[in-house]
Amino acid sequence: MFNLHYRLERSAIGFVLAIIGVASIGGLIEIAPLFTIDETVEKAPDMRVYTPLEVAGRNIYMREGCYACHSQMIRTLRDEVERYGPYSLAVESKYDHPMLWGSKRTGPDLARVGGKYSNDWHVAHLTNPRDVVAESNMPAYRWLSSKQLKTGDLGEHLAALRAVGVPYTDEMVSNASSDAIGQANPDTDLAAGVTTRYGDKTDVSLFDGNQGAVTEMDALVAYLQILGHLTDAAHQSTQNEVE
């Protein structure tokens, strides 16, 4: 028994077969749960996809490394639920590629930050965090307000996400650029197309407070405001548990 590895090391074929056998066991343990994925992921008929502007904001969120200090997963622990809201469900990350659950909280969890603060608060916070949270050690991102958002390639971003399973339609892909502009300019003709394609509950607003050119601040605030609101499944689940 104790000399088995010595014998394996002397036999190249035996050693390779042993490695394959052990790796297969680990692989099976990891892969087997995927066969029950339809049973473990909750149903959410009201689930909607990210708009092009929100996709752009998510890309900026990743580019600036926000996920390194903020998680997006509320655990089932009582103190987390009381502080942040209903615990996170798997279905809420259904269209996240990659997922941004995170593993470290220098700042608070953001899974339910959408709608918690106004657009003006988010702009002030991103411009100079200390203006709204005195003890914050978060860096300022004031340049986002002056940097125009690149919208011309958003259709390609949506097409790439569709390739990995996000149900964007041809119409959504072809109108991605105009929809991004329209969502940040509510008093324009382009705004109507956003709600037509993504639903009446879509937040169409002057996210950075200024009409006209769409900035990276618009995109990032739009993304933050949708977190926790792609579906109401978590709130419905909590209500069912109480009943």
Score class of each variant (00 low, 15 high):
75 R>W: 08
129 P>L: 11
160 A>K: 15
193 G>L: 05
120 D>I: 07
88 S>P: 07
20 I>L: 13
2 F>L: 09
86 P>W: 06
46 D>K: 03
227 L>N: 05
124 A>R: 15
68 A>C: 10
21 G>L: 05
42 E>T: 05
184 A>S: 05
145 S>I: 02
146 S>H: 14
170 D>W: 01
64 E>M: 12
21 G>M: 01
132 V>N: 03
44 A>Y: 00
240 N>R: 15
133 V>E: 04
230 L>P: 07
65 G>N: 07
227 L>F: 09
212 G>T: 07
133 V>I: 15
154 L>G: 04
118 S>F: 06
73 M>K: 14
21 G>Q: 03
67 Y>V: 07
200 D>W: 07
131 D>M: 10
51 T>M: 02
236 Q>E: 11
68 A>Y: 10
41 V>F: 04
234 A>M: 05
56 A>K: 08
91 V>M: 01
45 P>C: 09
147 K>Y: 09
46 D>F: 00
237 S>M: 12
242 V>K: 15
137 N>P: 14
235 H>M: 10
203 D>W: 02
88 S>N: 00
188 T>F: 05
193 G>P: 04
2 F>G: 09
171 E>G: 02
202 T>L: 01
84 Y>R: 03
242 V>E: 14
2 F>D: 01
54 E>Y: 03
219 A>G: 04
72 Q>A: 12
166 V>F: 02
126 L>K: 01
227 L>Q: 11
99 M>G: 10
82 E>Q: 14
166 V>I: 14
241 E>G: 13
126 L>W: 03
192 A>Y: 09
234 A>T: 00
95 Y>L: 02
65 G>A: 10
239 Q>Y: 11
220 L>H: 01
12 A>P: 10
21 G>D: 03
105 R>Q: 15
163 A>S: 15
122 H>P: 04
32 A>V: 12
85 G>W: 06
202 T>K: 00
225 Q>I: 02
37 I>L: 11
122 H>I: 11
225 Q>E: 01
149 L>D: 03
186 P>Q: 01
10 R>G: 08
122 H>R: 06
179 D>Q: 13
134 A>G: 08
96 D>K: 08
243 E>V: 13
81 V>A: 02
6 Y>V: 12
61 Y>K: 09
239 Q>S: 13
207 F>L: 09
143 W>C: 09
108 P>D: 00
103 S>E: 13
125 H>L: 09
191 A>R: 04
113 V>S: 12
12 A>Q: 11
146 S>G: 15
186 P>V: 04
222 A>M: 02
45 P>M: 13
209 G>S: 04
114 G>T: 03
192 A>C: 07
75 R>E: 11
161 L>T: 12
111 A>M: 11
36 T>S: 13
243 E>Y: 14
164 V>S: 04
19 I>C: 15
84 Y>V: 01
138 M>H: 05
9 E>T: 06
212 G>E: 08
115 G>A: 03
